[in-house]
Amino acid sequence: MFSESKMGPGYITLNILRVCNIISLLLIVVASWIMLVMTVKTSNFFFFDGAGHFITSSIAIFLIVSEVGLLKKWFARVWPILSNESGFVFLGLAMISLGCNDLGNLNKMATSQQNLGLPMWRVVIASGILSLIFGLFNIIATYVFSDSKLGITGRQVRADGAAISKGTSGKSAFSVSSGSVRRPATPVLPSYSEDRRKSKFGMKWPISISRPIVPDTEQARNWSDRSSPVIPEIQRPATSLHPAYNKEAYPAPPVPPPASSRYSVVSNMTRF
């Protein structure tokens, strides 16, 4: 079980590891451009080697942006594997691949120690070794500082530290400060009893609700015929008091006289 005592040390350890990741990836970018320049100078078929070095440097820059914390919402929406919802497994595998690629290029003539020179050759070999080491550390840190049962990932511990255990755990909210997208838990819908009835259209409806239970008293028995289904203490008026059955008390309104003609009649004036 994931212990809260790991969150404080995990926060410090993972942030130190983040700095090491950025340094290793920056060395990958520098080493890729060094090999790109030397490949252009010494090889006639430099296009595909140069394209490979350029792609390697672009991937390293992309990973640096994700580690620095820029475009958090964009990564959470488009690249969730590099957001706080995921661990460091993908990052570790990517760094191991980049390190292997850099070390593999040292066997080529254009990027050998004789062509690169000892200082640049050391930069290339250091970038490959550091990328391999810290890539492995990222994979290990994912399983040490995370708990899949609680939905806590290593990136969440690195962003929130011990604060992740206060009020929220796992995927429960959206945190703008850490850039994490934690989806709310699925709402629990109300469940009805197994005894359900079907309408004539085949649809299932909940059991019909009965009228309120009235105490078995004499007053309740006298009022049960005219009592309100909501408030039994209130009874409706007697039917005989309805205006339709009591015409003397409520006479019909008088019939209005017919409307007069719109033409006036003059007595002292003939039609012609």
Rank of each mutant, 00 (worst) to 15 (best):
S112K: 06
A51K: 12
S177V: 06
L25Y: 01
P80G: 09
D225I: 07
K198A: 10
R155H: 10
A249F: 04
G92W: 03
A141D: 10
D195C: 03
V157Q: 09
T111W: 12
L150C: 01
V37R: 13
V30E: 04
S58H: 00
S210Y: 02
L17G: 08
L103A: 03
S178V: 01
D147G: 05
F145Q: 04
P243V: 00
L14N: 01
V65T: 14
L82G: 01
I231A: 14
R197P: 00
G154N: 08
A159M: 10
S112H: 04
E85K: 13
R236H: 14
G170P: 04
V19S: 14
P119I: 03
A163I: 00
R182Y: 12
R221G: 02
G87T: 01
S127H: 02
S240L: 08
Y245C: 05
L106E: 06
I61H: 07
N105P: 01
T153K: 07
V29L: 05
V65I: 15
A185N: 09
K198N: 05
T217L: 04
R196L: 15
W74K: 06
D195A: 07
V37I: 15
T239L: 14
P80D: 09
G69Q: 05
P257I: 03
A252P: 06
F2H: 08
K171A: 09
L26T: 08
I59N: 10
T186P: 02
K41F: 07
V181S: 12
N107R: 10
S165E: 05
P190I: 03
R122W: 13
R122Y: 12
P254W: 03
R196H: 05
Y143F: 15
C100R: 02
